[in-house]
Structures are given as C-alpha cells and as structure tokens.
Design a protein around this nucleic acid. Structure first.
Ligand SMILES: NC(=O)c1ccc[n+]([C@@H]2O[C@H](COP(=O)([O-])OP(=O)(O)OC[C@H]3O[C@@H](n4cnc5c(N)ncnc54)[C@H](O)[C@@H]3O)[C@@H](O)[C@H]2O)c1
Ligand SMILES: NC(=O)c1ccc[n+]([C@@H]2O[C@H](COP(=O)([O-])OP(=O)(O)OC[C@H]3O[C@@H](n4cnc5c(N)ncnc54)[C@H](O)[C@@H]3O)[C@@H](O)[C@H]2O)c1
Lengths: 234, 234
DNA sequence: TTTTTATAGTTATATTTTTCACATCTAATG
DNA sequence: CATTAGATGTGAAAAATATAACTATAAAAA
C-alpha cells in the first residue's frame, strides 16, 4: 500500500491566488487482489449454478482474464489446486474469504438518497457479497419519507447509526458541491473507508481509504475507444 | 490496444461437462489516457469556477495524481505548457478534445430502465461531457410508461433508434441473467461499444469494446482495505 | 503397472507504468 | 540587464504488472 506525500498547492481564481494544503491518499488495491475479488464474484455465481470445479482457463474465461494470470494470482496468494483436476469451487471461495478476513457481514451506510443512493439501497444482491447497507442519509425531508427496507435518516442521526452498527465504510452519493463537506462529517464520526460517486477528489488524511467511482469517465472511455476503431490499423 | 486470443473453455455443471468457445476482448484504455479523461473532468469544473491557469501540482492535487505523473502524461500526448506559468485551462481542455476527437456530442442508449438505468437517465451533467443519452429501453411495460425527458422504448424499436441517432455506444443495465442476450442484440444492431453494469463478463468478438463496471467490487475493495488498516504496519 | 496427458505451479522474460533526477526554460526581480 | 526562483519537459531508473515458457504432478488410460 502506498501513500502520496503531503504537498502544498495553490490555485488561481479570478487572478487571486488561493493556497490549499492537501494530504492525499490512494488505495488502488493491487491489481492481483482486485482480480481475486473478481474471481470470487464469479465463483459465487458459478456455485449458485451448481458448478463444483473450475480450471484456471474456465475461471479466466468467466472473468476475462488469461489462464496464466489466474494461476499466477493464485500462486501469489498461496491458493493451491489439484494438478490435474483444477480447483474446487467451495474451497476456492473459502480461501478467498480468508484473504479478505471475511468474518461475517460488513455494515455500510450511504449518504445521499438520490438516484445513485436509491439504486444501491434497492439492490438486493449485495448481501451475497456480505455487503450490508444498514442505513441511508439525506438532508431533503421529502427523501426522508421514503418507505423501504433500508431506512432514510436525517444527517443528525449519522453518528448514532455509525456507532451502533460499527460502520467503517460509507458511500457518498451526494452532489459534487457538498461531497467534501459530507466526507469531512463522515471522517469526524469515525468512518475510514469511502466509496465516492461525486466527480471530485476528496481531500482526506492518509489514514482514510477513498475509492472514486467516476461513471462519466467509465462511459467516456468506451466512447473514445469506439471512436478509435476504424482509424487505427492493428 | 490488446486482445486476448480465442480459447475454448469448458465448465462442469452437475457433473456434466459443457464446452464454450469464447472470444474475449478487453479495452483497458491505457492508464495515461484514463487520467487525461480525469484531468479533463477536473478542468471543466475548474473552468466553471473561473480558474484560468493551473500548474502540474494543482491539477495533480485536484485529481489525486502526482505532479510528475501529470507532466509525464502531458508529455506523452505532446501537451505543452508555459515553463514558468503552468498551463492555460482553456488551452488544455482544447488539446484534450483534440485527443478524444471530440467533434460534438456522442449519442448513446441505455438498456434497462431500472435503478441504474434511471439514475443515468436522470443525471443532468452528462451533457457537459458531451455524452447524450438519446433513449432507454426496457421489456417491462410499466417502465415504458415512465414520463421523462429521456424516452423509454420497447426493445422492438432499438434498431430504428440506433440507426436514426447513429448510436455506437450502449449501456447495459439489465439483470445479469439477460445481459448476454441484450449484448448480442446490441451487437447485431451495430453497437460496438458497451458499458456493462451487470456482474458478468460478456462474450463478444474482438471488434467490440466492453467496459465492465462492477459496483460490488468497487465497494468490496474499500471494505477490504479498511479491514487491513490496523493489521499491517507501514 | 506403466504411459500418457491435461492441468497446476513456478521461474524467466517482457512490457507497462511510475518515480526520480535534473536539464531547460520563462517570468519576475533587483 | 543579469540574476534567480519556480515552473515545465524528459530520459533514465525502478517498480509493478503481464506474458510466456517450462516443470512437476495427479489422474486417466493403456
Ligand atoms: N446519476 C448518475 O448517473 C451519475 C453519474 C455520474 C456521477 N454522478 C454523481 O453521483 C452523485 C450522486 O448523483 P445522483 O444522480 O444520485 O444525485 P441526486 O441529486 O439524485 O441525489 C443526491 C442526493 O443527495 C442529497 N443531498 C444533497 N446535499 C446533501 C447533503 N449535504 N447531505 C446529505 N444529502 C444531501 C439530495 O437531497 C439528493 O437526494 C453526484 O455527485 C453525481 O455527480 C451521478
Ligand atoms: N443497483 C445497484 O446498485 C447495482 C449494484 C451492482 C450491480 N448492479 C447490476 O446492474 C444491473 C442493473 O441493476 P438495477 O438495480 O438497475 O436492476 P433493476 O432490476 O432495477 O433494473 C433492470 C431493468 O431491466 C429490465 N429488463 C429485464 N430484462 C430485460 C431484457 N431482456 N431487456 C430489456 N430490459 C430488461 C427490467 O424490466 C428492469 O427495469 C444488474 O445486472 C445488477 O446486477 C446493480
């Protein structure tokens, strides 16, 4: 795991210079570990279908990874298979749970019960991945009247819920202008992992993990790739 | 750009062996180019705030990238600044548009007007990034009655809309079990770029660009990082 | 039992990506 | 006008990642 050093920055806004002291963090979970997550998701689905056994190339094909890469990743995390018969799905899942120290469900909260926040709250399959959304928060009173399995609370109750459910990870799904503000509150109440959907890089100290999910970038990168095809020869 | 080779795979389901011939593609847009996208998003926001000029470390700090990396990326795409005065925001944005061949808006469609599909359709800021959702599609008649700026059509009208708006990129936001099916339809109608929210790896030929966005993985990777802190020394 | 074969596991190599160090340039300053 | 401070630009080194090639082994077949 690596952290960026503290740097002082300045911005010019309308010919006035502003100084910002920023401490930045990255948690770009090394690629191999991200793939273990990917394999696990795929294995859980395969298991549900009744699949008992996979080969490195089966799993690779399922996850869009080369067979060598799958074996290499397993090797890195000391996951052993049977040299002729591949890997047992249940055993694999078990070993992955160990890697992720998965002792039961992980309670998380979502701030902002708008489009994205509601999508996440309505999604039923998180529980298969042991992700448990215990509450959502919103400042808008009309949102607070939403009736669903997952409650919507006012911001005032955030600390209480975080403490009660021992929440360590939160999702930010509020407009970009208030994302930093919400982030600061979350950190104050003891959150140390954030998934951020707002298109801003949050300023946090380096003990806080932030994962920025930028949907515009995800779409735009495909649009760009598509615009390339036909232009370049292979 | 790199493509995986064609491989034959087999899966064992309830002790029956199934063979699948699969052709897989990846479009992992090289990291530097992904960051250019990130810089551009940030610059557009800064521009709206009235910022005229940035330095490599300003922009780096804004996007969570090191100053050296920013300069290196610019160097790769032959983007020049002023060796004392940094970079002019408008000029930078212009150069990036050139890189992305951005001649006007890009029309895209969304299949599945459920949680994610509606979130995307309701999002007003795509247009700033020249992403233009022209239509959404759903098999559910109740979804087809949704009234909003962006229409919901039956699947029957897909080909017509794709042709009319010259759509090349589509977003898949349907349940995982039908994602491959929808994908095949899209490809049949001439789509060659797909952003896939379903947690399955789509089987496509290597002329089709697929970007898988797996929200569970995004959340889980933070949960994992958080569970590590305190366990490891730095 | 021996041989064959398919697949895991590992080591070596290649490629990509990031970081570092410093030369270079430009705008401000005295 | 010469000097200097503070930026950019880039080649080289280092680190991370991916690919390929090879070895070992277990299961199946002969
Ligand atoms: N919807 C998308 O497809 C999409 C795409 C790209 C990026 N994003 C980003 O994701 C974030 C959420 O998007 P969305 O479409 O769900 O927005 P939204 O407007 O639907 O929802 C935002 C919610 O946050 C609440 N909110 C506002 N200020 C708050 C505060 N200070 N504290 C708590 N709650 C507050 C609002 O009441 C609202 O319910 C935004 O930052 C947006 O830029 C969304
Ligand atoms: N909502 C989330 O937070 C979340 C998180 C992780 C992954 N995902 C994935 O994203 C995808 C969409 O999720 P969602 O929550 O929006 O689902 P959803 O159930 O809300 O919406 C799916 C929509 O697709 C439509 N649909 C079903 N079959 C179709 C078909 N054959 N053709 C066209 N439309 C069809 C349904 O009518 C529905 O409106 C799913 O694959 C899901 O696994 C969602």
């Amino acid at each position: 795991m690596k952290f960026e050093k503290i740097i002082a920055t300045c911005v010019e806004i309308n010919s006035e210079i502003f100084f910002i002291v920023k401490i930045n963090t990255k948690c770009p979970l090394k690629r191999s570990l991200r793939r273990i997550l990917l394999y696990r998701g795929s294995l859980l689905r395969l298991q549900a279908l009744g699949v008992k056994r996979v080969y490195s190339y089966t799993l690779g094909s399922e996850t869009g990874v080369s067979a060598e890469q799958v074996r290499k990743d397993f090797s890195e995390y000391h996951i052993k298979g049977n040299q002729r018969g591949g890997y047992r799905v249940d055993k694999l899942i078990g070993e992955m749970e160990t890697i992720f120290h998965n002792n039961g469900n992980h309670n998380i909260i979502v701030v902002g019960r708008g489009n994205i926040g509601s999508s996440l709250a309505n999604y039923n399959n998180f529980i298969q991945r042991q992700i448990n959304i215990v509450a959502t928060f919103d400042i808008d009173p009309s949102k607070q009247r939403i009736r669903s399995d997952i409650p919507v609370y006012t911001m005032e109750r955030m600390k209480e819920i975080i403490d009660r459910f021992e929440v360590r990870t939160a999702i930010i799904a509020v407009p970009d202008m208030v994302a930093q503000n919400v982030c600061d509150q979350l950190v104050k109440y003891g959150i140390d992992g954030i998934v951020n959907f707002a298109p801003v890089i949050l300023k946090v100290t380096d003990d806080i993990i932030v994962n920025n999910v930028n949907l515009s970038d995800e779409i735009e990168s495909v649009i760009y790739c598509v615009s390339l095809t036909g232009l370049e020869e292979f």
